[in-house]
Design a protein around this nucleic acid. Structure first.
Lengths: 141, 141
DNA sequence: TTAAGTGCAAATTATTTGCAGTAAG
DNA sequence: CTTACTGCAAATAATTTGCACTTAA
């Protein structure tokens, strides 16, 4: 419990965001166990309530956005309205289940190594590449 | 003008969707010139109005969805609420301008060839890969 | 103390839907 | 004919915002 909060606080500090009561609670839920995870505003809201944390949905939205802007969360865009956020901010591919809307990391690596994007084009004049999103859409067989 | 309609009609037929007046008009705008293009519901609506076509926004939405389900359009998901649709249904990478929300094909190929995703993982048990989306997010330098 | 964060509820934005009328096969 | 499509307006879903209040630094 305490380890989770400590980890969360360190994470907040890394992002240079103010450590309020609700942010510390959310941070603990997000990175408290050292595992990476994917959340949506709604899912994090449920989790928070389940843990007895008193945080409004609006604050969850504001907070997820603040964390993303601070660079400690990464927004993953897939179909289906909802925004997903990933505690792993490094470039990595995702599986997306089209039927349930669930998002999962591509953990298992193929025989030859990690998923990688080859032959990335040069960015157009006056632009830089902010990131590369790779989403593998899955359908039940 | 006629060539555009002919092309549009053929395209509709390829998808096996009913050729109504508004669909033929939209198809002509989408693929009439043989070029691929990206549209949003809103942008297609504007284009249609600009060409004097009488089509409601709701129908644009329904139609884009119908075309996508028929496999003659591909939905591209990027940040920012709006859904984009691409007349090029093949797997190909996109540039996404974060500031304007514009979408562009990666046309220019790097020295070594086309953009490609290497070491694609095997899909989880009971799933098949429905598609792979590669979005290169661009920020003004 | 003071700028930033929080929580409502109301507002926005993108998209879908119910249903009566219209048209394609 | 008959089923699918169209258009409007109303409904929904996700997210944002205005504003008075609280709190971290």
């Amino acid at each position: 419990m305490e380890a989770a909060k400590r980890r969360g606080a360190a994470w907040l500090e890394a992002g240079g965001v103010r450590a309020t009561r609700q942010r510390v609670a959310l941070a603990a839920l997000l990175v408290g166990d050292g595992e990476h995870r994917h959340v949506t505003a709604e899912s994090l809201f449920e989790t928070a309530r389940a843990h007895g944390e008193k945080v409004s949905l609006a604050t969850i939205y504001n907070t997820l956005r603040a964390f993303t802007e601070a660079g400690i969360l990464r927004e993953i865009t897939v179909d289906g309205g909802k925004s997903h956020f990933d505690t792993d901010t490094s470039n990595h591919a995702h599986f997306y289940w089209e039927d349930t809307g669930e998002l999962a990391d591509v953990r298992e690596r193929a025989a030859a190594g990690d998923v990688e994007v080859r032959n990335l084009p040069a960015p157009p004049e006056g632009a830089r590449i902010a990131g590369v999103d790779v989403v593998i859409r899955l359908r039940r067989a």
